[in-house]
Amino acid sequence: MNKKFITYSVAVIIVFMMTFGAPLEAANAAQPATLKVGSSGPDVPDLQYRLKTMGYFNTDVTTYFGTKTLESLKRFQKEYGLAADGVAGTQTWDTLKKVSANQKELDLLAKIIYAEARGESYKGQVAVGAVVMNRLSASGFPDSIRGVIEQPRAFTAVADGQYKLTPDKTAYQAAQDAVKGYDPTNGALYYFNPEIATSDWIWSRKQTVKIGRHIFAV
């Protein structure tokens, strides 16, 4: 192939990436739209699914913001100290993302629960999910479920590959309960197996409860 043609082609690709790459990245990273009664589009099912995982929205997820979505959203806003205006604006979205999960995030939560605690009781599995949700709401941790789970050295199962295993139905149920606020750890941000833990730091944390093989701490 002609070298001049290759050089020209590469230049065209670079110009295309410079011209369109940033806007595309910005669009992908954009905040969800402000939603209210009558709104439609891809952010509506995200909103409904998050409300559904928390027990506020009890019907099928759609792409339309109707009266059922309005009622569900207003209940959520009221219980979380927000203006109960039924409008999903920036503050509502920010709060919702710290205490809920969409479908992809629920998948990730079920995966880490299964990887870290599949040999534990149901309560022990929910406890692992609760730690993820507690970190999501706490300062000093990533602000997304994926970020919390995949933070370097945060969870052993991510590092050793068990995170890639397919979670079972119990792990998904545990994930849903953790998202709904069931927290048997009493607000724990960490947990460890005392039989294999070698870190002096983790032993220095205030312990909240022991469930199965794990000690939970803040």
Rank of each mutant, 00 (worst) to 15 (best):
M1G: 13
N2K: 06
F5W: 03
I6M: 08
S9D: 07
V12H: 13
I13G: 05
I14R: 11
V15D: 06
V15C: 12
F16R: 11
F16H: 07
F16Y: 10
G21E: 03
E25Y: 12
E25V: 13
A30H: 04
A30C: 11
Q31A: 14
T34L: 13
S39T: 09
S39E: 03
G41I: 09
G41C: 11
P45S: 02
R50W: 06
R50H: 11
R50T: 11
L51K: 15
K52I: 03
G55I: 03
Y56N: 13
Y56W: 05
F57N: 11
T59M: 09
D60G: 10
T63Q: 13
Y64E: 03
G66K: 11
K68I: 08
T69F: 07
L70T: 09
E71W: 06
L73G: 08
R75I: 05
Q77H: 15
A83L: 14
T90I: 14
T92N: 12
T92W: 10
L96P: 11
K97R: 09
K98L: 15
A101R: 00
Q103I: 06
D107K: 08
K111P: 02
A115V: 00
A117L: 00
E120T: 01
K123T: 08
V126K: 03
A127T: 01
G129A: 02
A130K: 02
M133Q: 01
N134F: 00
S137W: 08
A138M: 04
D143G: 08
S144R: 00
S144C: 03
I145A: 07
I145R: 04
V148G: 04
V148L: 04
P152M: 07
R153F: 06
R153H: 11
R153I: 06
F155Q: 03
V158T: 05
V158M: 10
T166N: 13
D168C: 10
K169M: 10
K169H: 03
A175L: 14
Q176M: 14
D177T: 03
V179C: 14
K180C: 09
K180I: 05
G181Q: 14
G181H: 12
G181T: 07
D183I: 03
P184H: 04
G187A: 04
Y190T: 05
N193F: 15
P194G: 10
D200C: 06
I202G: 11
I202T: 13
K206P: 11
Q207T: 12
T208D: 00
V209W: 00
V209P: 00
I215N: 02
